[in-house]
Design a protein around this nucleic acid. Structure first.
Lengths: 128, 128
DNA sequence: CAGCTTACGCACCAAAAAGTTCGTTACAGC
DNA sequence: GCTGTAACGAACTTTTTGGTGCGTAAGCTG
């Protein structure tokens, strides 16, 4: 497995190359939400539990740099920005779905029904 | 996306859960080599470029803990250990292949033919 | 005219990941 | 009896990640 250099960055193998672009804690949650629609910064922030502004901003900058998402800025005050997938981003979504499905399977083997958990949570949100 | 607790560890979502188990720099290289055959510690060490002993050991321990690989020890001196995939490990290999294939595609879009690079490298190794 | 709003960048600090070096075991060959 | 060997564990340092809090623009609202 030889090393590969792209944009002056070294990657050990193709898996490494992919995981640099979509790995880490926050990239998948962002991409997952953008898979069907364009969203604003503040919408992402509200919808992704635990994410800090710093991490959201950093994640968005990296996804932009790798040409996975696009940013559209409406130059007003207060600011308004929208993020959406690029063609490359759309190409990558099926992979995220595969990873997610594997995760659901593995969780099931641990006795956890994640889809049911999500439904439960929605009920509780509505109650409030 | 609610949090999930498994073995006292928190995961934000199914993708997070999978990437904790197979993400990072070294897990895929190890699993990729074990996908077809059992290997000794020293064989893995020789075959994976750049890996340090510490990282190899740590990676193997984590994969064992997550029940993805098995260790067989032959109690002699010098030591002899063998690593192979468990059933769960075999389940995960297709996902690694998907990630790898996506990586190959993305590299191709950057003008890099990784399979050709590997062939070149093999020639060079034989020359030495 | 004070305060709220959105989407950040920046500085500072703590925590986690990763690399480097060293030590160990016990037998086999020189 | 000194050296090499395989597979590590432990200690230490460096690098990378991640979190918190602060500052900012400029118009709209009370």
């Amino acid at each position: 497995m030889p090393d590969v250099f792209i944009d002056n960055q070294r990657f050990y193998n193709p898996v490494d190359y992919v995981l640099q672009q979509i790995g880490g804690t926050w990239k998948a949650p962002v991409l997952w939400r953008l898979r069907t629609k364009t969203l604003r910064y503040s919408e992402l922030e509200k919808d992704i539990p635990h994410i800090s502004q710093k991490m959201l901003t950093k994640t968005l900058r990296e996804l932009e740099k790798d040409n996975i998402i696009e940013k559209k800025v409406y130059a007003k005050v207060p600011p308004h920005t929208e993020y959406s997938l690029t063609a490359k981003g759309k190409m990558i979504i099926p992979l995220i779905e595969s990873i997610r499905n594997t995760g659901l399977e593995l969780m099931k083997e641990e006795g956890i029904d994640y889809d049911a958990m999500i439904k439960e949570e929605k009920k509780n949100v509505l109650k409030k």
